[in-house]
C-alpha cells in the first residue's frame, strides 16, 4: 500500500484548507482550487512576480517570501498579493548624472529612510536592502548597484517599508546609471552585441523560434553552461 500523504492545515484568505505537506505556497493555492492569473510567473524564483506575505502559527512575525519558493507549514495564514503598486517616474537616462542629484530629483523619498531594516528582513533574495538605500543617500551609486545586483523586483521591501520608499525602483536606476556611466566597458559584451547586429546568430535564433515547446524545454534543460573558456 502506498504511504499515506501527510496533510497540513493552512488558511487561505481566512478559509481553512488541507493540502499535502511539502507544497510551495503557489502549489498549495492551486491544490486548493485557486487559479492564479496575477502574482505568478516563472515558478523558479527568478521573476519576482510571486512576492507574498504570510504568518506562521504561533509566530507574531509577519513574514515575506516568494510564493513559488516558500513551503507551506501547519497553521500557515496565506494571502496572495497580485501586484505591488509602486511609483516609477519616467526618465531619460542620457540626461541624468550618475550621482545623488538624480535621486534627489526622481526618488526624494529615499531620504525618509529611518534605518529600521524592515526591508532587509523581508527580502527573499537576502539582500542588504537598507544598506543599499543608505548608500544611495550618501550618493554612492556604485555601491547601491553592487548591493542590489540580485534584486528580482518582487516589491516586498516596498510593501513593508514604514517610510513608503520604493527601494527596488531607485535601485534599478542606480544599476542603469552605473552600467552606463561608472563601469568600465566590457569588450566581450560590445563584440557580442556587434555580432548579433551583424546577424551572426540569425540561423540559430530562427531554429529556436520555430522549435515546438517540448523540444525547446528539453534543449533548455540540457544546455551546457560554459562560464569561461
Amino acid at each position: 500500500m502506498a504511504e499515506k500523504q501527510k496533510m497540513v492545515k493552512i488558511h487561505i484568505l481566512g478559509e481553512p484548507f488541507y493540502v499535502p505537506d511539502g507544497l510551495t505556497i503557489i502549489n498549495a493555492l492551486e491544490y486548493a482550487g485557486f487559479q492564479l492569473t496575477h502574482g505568478i510567473g516563472c515558478r523558479e524564483g527568478f521573476c519576482g512576480a510571486c512576492g507574498t506575505i504570510f504568518r506562521k502559527k504561533g509566530d507574531y512575525k509577519l513574514q515575506a517570501g516568494l510564493a513559488c519558493q516558500t513551503i507551506v507549514s501547519e497553521g500557515m495564514y496565506l494571502a496572495q498579493i497580485p501586484f505591488v503598486p509602486a511609483e516609477k517616474p519616467i526618465y531619460d537616462i542620457t540626461k541624468l548624472p550618475p550621482d545623488i542629484t538624480s535621486f534627489k530629483e526622481l526618488y526624494p523619498v529615499i531620504f525618509r529612510c529611518v534605518a529600521c531594516n524592515t526591508c532587509t528582513k523581508s527580502c527573499p533574495q537576502d539582500l542588504e536592502v537598507m544598506d543599499y538605500v543608505q548608500a544611495l543617500i550618501k550618493g554612492d551609486v556604485e555601491k547601491t548597484a553592487d548591493l542590489s545586483f540580485d534584486c528580482i523586483r518582487c516589491g516586498l521591501c516596498a510593501l513593508r517599508c514604514p517610510a513608503e520608499i520604493v527601494q527596488y525602483n531607485a535601485a534599478i536606476l542606480a544599476r542603469r546609471l552605473c552600467g552606463r556611466y561608472l563601469l568600465k566597458e566590457s569588450r566581450d559584451l560590445t563584440n557580442r552585441v556587434k555580432e548579433i547586429a551583424e546577424g551572426d546568430y540569425d540561423t540559430e535564433l530562427d531554429e529556436l523560434v520555430k522549435m515546438d515547446e517540448d523540444k525547446l524545454k528539453k534543449k533548455y534543460y540540457e544546455r551546457e553552461i560554459k562560464l569561461f573558456d
Binding site: F111, C113, N117, D131, Q134, I137, P162
Partner: peptide, 25 residues
C-alpha cells in the same frame, strides 16, 4: 565599515522610538 544616516533630526516625541533606531544602529 557600515553606517546609516544618523536620523537627521532628534525626535522629541516621547513615544516615537522609531526615529531613534537609526542613531542606535
Amino acid at each position: 565599515d557600515r553606517w546609516n544616516c544618523c536620523g537627521t533630526v532628534f525626535s522629541l516625541a516621547t513615544d516615537d522610538l522609531m526615529h531613534h533606531i537609526a542613531a542606535i544602529r
